[in-house]
């Protein structure tokens, strides 16, 4: 169950500058845990004190926003790309 995680610029200080990481995991929670094992400390930056995804983060599994798909429980298929994207203002 190998997935590719795309790391946004502000998080690359936690990955030694790497823009992607390849980890194992069958859902978003497992992917976050695997990322934290590969890059200790990254979990604290993705999850708030209550263990939920931080409110200014958007996480996508392929093209699906995980908030429409179960949040941390959202399934992550083998070979998927997980994108972590800070929320932006707009219009």
């Amino acid at each position: 169950m190998s997935v590719t995680v795309r790391i946004p610029t502000p998080l690359r200080t936690a990955t030694g500058g790497d823009a992607t990481a390849v980890v194992e995991g069958g859902n978003v929670a497992e992917v976050v845990a695997a990322l934290d094992r590969a890059h200790p400390g990254i979990g604290d930056r993705l999850l708030d004190e209550g263990g939920k995804l931080r409110r200014f983060l958007n996480v996508y599994v392929d093209d699906e926003d995980v908030r429409f798909a179960g949040g941390l429980d959202a399934p992550v298929p083998d070979g998927a790309t997980v994108s972590i994207i800070p929320a932006v203002a707009g219009g």
Binding site: T9, Y60, D63, S83, I85, V88, A89, G90
Partner: peptide
């Protein structure tokens, strides 16, 4: 959608030396 556009731009903003006004 706009949210898709935003997502793409957030990733582009990490790659290109551009001034994304809203990113």
């Amino acid at each position: 959608s706009y949210d898709d556009v935003n997502r793409l731009c957030s990733e582009v903003a990490g790659e290109e030396p551009w001034a994304f006004v809203n990113i």
